[in-house]
């Protein structure tokens, strides 16, 4: 009963400040993602050269003709960066979609039947989460062979566990809501209830996990490609790093234009999606 105006005002002020901060971060994320996506889409027009062609002498330092210099076989590095965005983003988005598909299916089923089926499934999810990630990724990728599709599948299969957990907890709370009970009392079979009353209401939350998964997938793709397990034909930022490493660019002054740009781009892409996910989750948090 002693709640006074002061405290209330103070809490609203901090709430305001944090919401302003989070929308600023979200906006930053949207700008980064927007820039990268448009670079990927407009790559043929933006890139000064064809990245698969030899356009100059190898190992050139940056100049006005080649802003980031050339690589070991004389391809333009700037063009390679711009076209690399296509591969990185595609892998990130498609792998996240695969993860979301698996995660939603598992999460919804495990949440709707929480007793036996659900607890067995969630033990499976826990297993995936405790597995050492990178070694497994490497083994799988090496076993399946180097192609874009395999990269996508391997990443997708490994990162669905987190969306599954998020969605399961939402379904758990949804299934005991009255509108779901009402549907069941009408005689709706489980399939009907799940498709009409449960899945649509997890959509917002799923959007948040999807964006987060994209951010993770971009990092994983870079890791795989850097280890030389990416698609040898489609050059991504990660494979640029792989070749830079092969040609000892890490130890020469060339790291400034051969190693730093792809590294920064990977970081930016992952950060951009993570920021968008952060502010999305803030906004759609089911607890609020």
């Amino acid at each position: 009963m002693t709640v006074t105006g002061h405290r209330q005002r103070a809490t609203t002020r901090t709430a305001l400040r944090s919401s302003r901060l989070s929308s600023l971060l979200g906006l930053t994320g949207v700008v980064i993602v927007g820039a990268l996506v448009s670079a990927a889409v407009l790559a043929p027009w933006l890139a000064p050269y064809d990245p698969t062609e030899r356009v100059a002498r190898p190992f050139l330092s940056p100049s006005w003709d080649h802003l980031l210099g050339t690589n070991d076989i004389g391809q333009d590095l700037l063009s390679e960066m711009i076209f690399g965005a296509r591969v990185s983003l595609t892998v990130g988005i498609v792998a996240a979609a695969v993860a979301l598909l698996i995660g939603t299916a598992v999460g919804v089923v495990a949440g709707y039947y929480p007793r036996r089926l659900g607890s067995v499934m969630m033990r499976g999810v826990d297993m995936i989460l405790v597995l050492p990630f990178l070694p497994l990724l490497i083994v799988l990728a090496a076993y399946l062979g180097r192609s874009l599709l395999n990269t996508i599948l391997v990443i997708g299969v490994l990162i669905w566990a987190e969306p599954a957990r998020v969605i399961r907890s939402q379904v758990l709370s949804l299934r005991s809501r009255e509108h779901v009970l009402a549907a069941r009392s009408m005689g709706a079979p489980d399939r009907w209830t799940i498709l009409r009353h449960i899945v649509p209401r997890t959509a917002l939350l799923a959007t948040g996990s999807f964006v987060r998964a994209v951010s993770n997938a971009i990092l994983l793709e870079a890791a795989l490609s850097f280890l030389g397990l990416g698609d040898p034909i489609q050059k991504s930022w990660g494979s640029t790093l792989f070749w830079a490493q092969e040609r000892l660019a890490f130890l020469t002054p060339a790291w400034k234009w051969w190693v730093l740009p792809p590294g920064l781009l990977i970081m930016m892409a992952s950060l951009g999606f993570a920021l968008v996910a952060f502010s999305l989750e803030e906004r759609i948090d089911p607890r609020l």
Binding site: R177, L181, S185, M186, G187, P189, D190, R201
Partner: peptide
């Protein structure tokens, strides 16, 4: 649950929470 339940229907206390928003 299934089609045989059509003959018995229910009306809940709080109509708002008993409908998909």
């Amino acid at each position: 649950s299934g089609p045989h339940q059509r003959v018995v229907q229910m009306i809940f206390q709080d109509p708002l929470s008993a409908m998909n928003p």
